[in-house]
Amino acid sequence: MSESNTAAFFRAEGTLINSGVLQAAAYMASQRAGMRERLLRFGQTALAAPIFGVLGQNDRALGNRVAHLSYRDISEDRVVVLAEEYVEDILKEKVLDSGLELMKKAKKDGHRIVVISEGISEIMEGVRPHLRYVDDLVCNRLEYKDHKATGRLLEPVVGGYDGGKWLKEYARKHEIDLERSVAFAGHGPDLLLLSSVGQPCAVNPDFTLRKAAKEADWPIMEFNA
């Protein structure tokens, strides 16, 4: 296997971007057409927050499904326009310089840069140019019917324990040597993703991942800027 067939996997949330899916869902909800719809969907997002917080430590896939329920009935047109706005007004300022440095170094080291995000494709494709070094972007996709979001995410839902399985499949398809690959992530459910590569690194880890990283003697990085 050649030197170039290695990858650097980055979980976007917490590692590259200092913002999560709830903030995006709340922004979208607050910009729905009509006051009634805005209040309803914003309330829905607010209710989803504690559920997401609790599930986030364990099954983030389910947490993501709950967080994205507030997208129900929003038109694809509106999602696309608002996503552009959200990236321009908010998200591009939340890109972590230290995360970009990590990507730059990984790129320099000859890794293929793969970003994995819980965010929806409309937003993540918009932020992609600001992440500069991305070779491959894997993110969640909303399901649409007649140009309206159903509130469901298309499979596979990013964020859950399936991450490790997905990673192996990805490595097989792209002939990536996982032993020589690196991964950066910050959430409990990313454990399997991190443990699948030879050089894992916990970045700004949550409680579960910090504990596991210490036990496994993985490097831990902390940065906010």
Partner: peptide, 11 residues
């Protein structure tokens, strides 16, 4: 859809 697109365009 046309009405919403118009609103989004003005936005």
């Amino acid at each position: 859809r046309l009405t919403e697109l118009s609103a989004l365009g003005h936005r």
